[in-house]
């Protein structure tokens, strides 16, 4: 059964990828790339990677698609040029692919329990993480404790993306949008005029925010954590913006405030590290936070997940604000 699901999903993935290559309507391509992400997420579930699937669905299907759509909203919706040097490219691609296939020859078979990766580092996580870190979800344990430094890096990557967008597009550009809208007498986006949409979204937003909080605080036991929660919380805001207009959303929380929240999120994460240093442990060694190491781990993970969640939420919304404010520029 698993095999059939697997093969079906892989076939669909292949077809979607080929379609993305062929189609030249950007809107269709973006939809297809969202579908591609969703298929990937399903595939990840079938391969037991529930946390990854969750993130891929939230990011690939959600955020990335929204950002892509707001970009074509402000630029162009049609690809105009034909592929360049397709034969040369095909040659490069085939050669690269051939080398990779050659490389798989000595790789352990798919799903082989005797493969080296299941026997060297991973067993300790599987056997000891509950005693050492205390979380049921092993992915959470590794993510936030064993490899917590990678996750700090990940948070900084998101922060960097936000900074880049702010540095390139600027706050002023975002705020001008509101002024322009008011000057033009536009109080809400087109979508806000649909009564059904309005009411449904109004009902959904609190549920989305609630779900985000659940994901944030339930990461110890099930799939989820700060990153996914941040994305979901942000999507609640994005919903609100789509419905009631950018101007209104920016009055709820201004881009500048968002950048402060993001900075504070990164500092929360780093601050936990500094605290552990000051309390005599290594950087991000949560054991020293409390007399009981397990409690220390619990507290440390709670705090850094909070840092991740706030940073991700505020940067996602900030980037969305920046992108949708460009749309006004064209009108």
């Amino acid at each position: 059964m698993e095999l059939i699901i697997d093969i079906t999903l892989l076939t669909f993935l292949g077809l979607t990828a080929l379609a993305i290559n062929r189609i030249d309507k950007l809107f269709c391509i973006i939809m297809l790339s969202g579908i591609y992400s969703l298929l990937c997420a399903s595939l990840f579930v079938s391969m037991d990677a529930v946390d990854v699937a969750f993130t891929e669905a939230a990011v690939g299907t959600g955020i990335a698609t929204v950002l892509l759509l707001s970009t074509i909203g402000a630029t162009d919706t049609q690809q105009r040029s034909a592929p360049q040097r397709p034969l040369f490219a095909l040659l490069v691609v085939c050669a690269t692919g051939a080398i990779l296939v050659y490389g798989t020859m000595d790789m352990p078979a798919f799903g082989d329990p005797d493969a080296p990766i299941h026997h060297h580092v991973a067993p300790r996580y599987l056997e000891m993480s509950q005693q050492e870190v205390g979380s049921d979800n092993i992915v959470t344990s590794i993510l936030s404790s064993y490899r917590g430094f990678d996750t700090l890096g990940e948070t900084v990557v998101i922060f960097t993306a936000g900074l880049s967008v702010v540095g390139l597009i600027g706050f002023r550009g975002m705020q001008k949008f509101g002024d322009r809208q008011r000057a033009a007498g536009i109080t809400q986006d087109d979508m806000g005029k649909h009564l059904v949409l309005r009411i449904v979204i109004k009902m959904f937003i609190p549920l989305i925010l609630l779900f985000a909080l659940y994901v944030q605080f339930h990461g110890d036991f099930g799939p989820g954590g700060g990153f996914q929660a941040g994305v979901i919380f942000a999507s609640g805001f994005i919903f609100y913006t789509l419905m009631f207009g950018l101007d209104a959303a920016m009055r709820v929380v201004s881009p500048r405030t968002l950048s402060y929240i993001a900075a504070l999120g990164v500092l929360t994460y780093g601050g936990v590290g500094i605290t552990t240093l000051l309390m005599g442990g290594n950087f991000l060694d949560y054991n020293v936070l409390r007399p009981d190491p397990l409690q220390g781990q619990h507290l440390g993970i709670f705090l850094i997940e909070l840092g991740v969640g706030t940073t991700v939420f505020s940067i996602m919304v900030l980037i969305f604000f920046a992108f949708s404010s460009r749309k006004g520029l064209r009108q």
Binding site: H120, S145, Y146, R147, G148, F149, F283, L284, Y286
Partner: peptide
């Protein structure tokens, strides 16, 4: 060792 976890389990 970051986080006090010895290599190769930690970073």
């Amino acid at each position: 060792d970051m986080g006090g976890w010895p290599a190769p389990w930690g970073i």
